[in-house]
Amino acid sequence: MSEVTFKVFRYDPAKDGGKHYQTYKVPLRRGMTVLQGLLYIKERLDPTLAIRFSCRMATCGSCGMMINGLPRLACYTLIEDLKKRTVVVEPLRNYPVIRDLVADFSEFFEKHRWVKPYLIRIDTYTQEKSNTSYLQSDEELERYVQFAYCIKCGLCNAACPVVASDKEFLGPQALAQLYRYLADSRDEGTAERLKSVADGHKLLRCHFAGSCSKVCPKGVDPALAIQLLRREILLRA
C-alpha cells in the first residue's frame, strides 16, 4: 500500500496571519478522493485543519478548492486521477480566504442575488396565491434546464480570468443564472433583466475564455449561457 504527500495551504488570521504550506503523509487506498485524504489528516494528523464539505457526492457544492492548480471538488477528485505523488491543496482562487481552505462566498452570493434568480411575473397575485400551474412544453424546458443544474460551487468563478481582475464583472455563475431565468418561458421580466446588464462591465467583459465550462463539475456550461445572453443583449436591448 502506497502513500501520497499532501501539501496543504495553512492560514490562520486569528493566530499569526502567516501563509504557509504544511506537508502530511497520507496512506493511499484505491478509489480514495482528495476529501477523504483531507479528512484523514483532520482526524489522525492535524485537527486544526479547516475545510468545508457536506454531501461527499458532488451535489452540495461545498468542497471546492484548488487541487494541483485547477479548481475542483475535493469529493469528486480521485487521488489516482491526479497521477502525481504530491497533492497540492489550496483555497479557491479569486475568493477571500477565511481560514486554511475555507473561502468567503459572501460576494459570490451577492452577485447571484443581484441577477434576481427567481421568476418575475407581471401578475404577482396569480404567482403567490392561486392554484394554477404554468404549462411548459419539452422544447421550452430544453432551452434552459441545462443551466438549472448549477450547484453554486463557485469553481467557474475561480477559473475565470476576468473575475480575477475585474470586480464589476458578475462572473459566469451569476450570468448563467441570469440566462436561465431569461430563457425560462414562465418568466416575464425579460426587459428588465436585459437592461440590467446591457451597460457596463457586468456581462460584456466576458471574452469567451471558456475556463468556466471546462471546470464545471455538473456540465452546466456557463460559457454557452453567457454567449446566448450576449446575443440577446446585442440583438435586442
Binding site: 446591457a198 451597460d199 457596463g200 462591465h201 460584456l204 443583449i233 446585442l234 436591448a237
Partner: peptide, 9 residues
C-alpha cells in the same frame, strides 16, 4: 455611449 453599442461597433 452604452457599452453594448461600443461592443457592436
Amino acid at each position: 455611449m452604452r457599452e453594448k453599442n461600443i461592443m457592436l461597433l
